[in-house]
Amino acid sequence: MSERRVELEVLRYHPETDAAPRFQRYSVDCREEWVVLDALNHVKETLDPTLSYRWSCHMAVCGSCGMMINGEPRLACKSFLRDYQGVIRVEPLAHFPIERDLVTVIDDFMAKLKRVKPYLIPAQARALEQGEYRQTPAELKRYKQFTLCMNCMLCYAACPEYGLIPKFIGPAAISLAHRYNQDSRDGGRAARQEEIAAAEGVWECSFTGACSEVCPEHVDPAAALQQVKIKSTVDWYLAHLMPWLKK
């Protein structure tokens, strides 16, 4: 197996002791087929056990290892070393405060996710003896793509609006709200609209489409947000022009 020498430039920051973040260079021998996460693991095991970063599955399923690689939000486990030339700069995800080194504080996203109620709110209560819910393939197709989100937050690091307006609920949370709104079993749309049809909900999106470009699971959050805008617009016109239709 062939090897390659890789130069990593990793952002280091311990908020308790450091005045400001700094970059640290590591020179490591890596295997040709390694990803950036393998290189970081190699650094931690052989050179510097103090380096902190999140990771878990190493196969683009858990969404833990999101970081900026050469300025682009990516999963470290899905970024092959052979695709990079020269020094590889690794930084924590943009737009999030730093907890330590490459580990970010994700409380803001977690709170927003909770606010949009990303779980099934059954339209009708169903007893166990009534059996399972049934869905046609067409009903499944309406939301399946949006179920693939694994909360890796790359879309938040890519979104210029989230960078400008931290109150913006953001791509992943709104896409997940949309996923349940689109589900034929669900009846929770009105409750979710309280958050996502508000000014700091979907309306802060200016459709730059960066979220969909960086999404490792091809959820296409930008499409979800535009669909939410259309539905919220129809809601608004119905409520204001035909108030007698209101249930």
Partner: peptide, 8 residues
Amino acid sequence: MAQSSKPI
């Protein structure tokens, strides 16, 4: 939260 009137 209030519904936004951005749809106009």
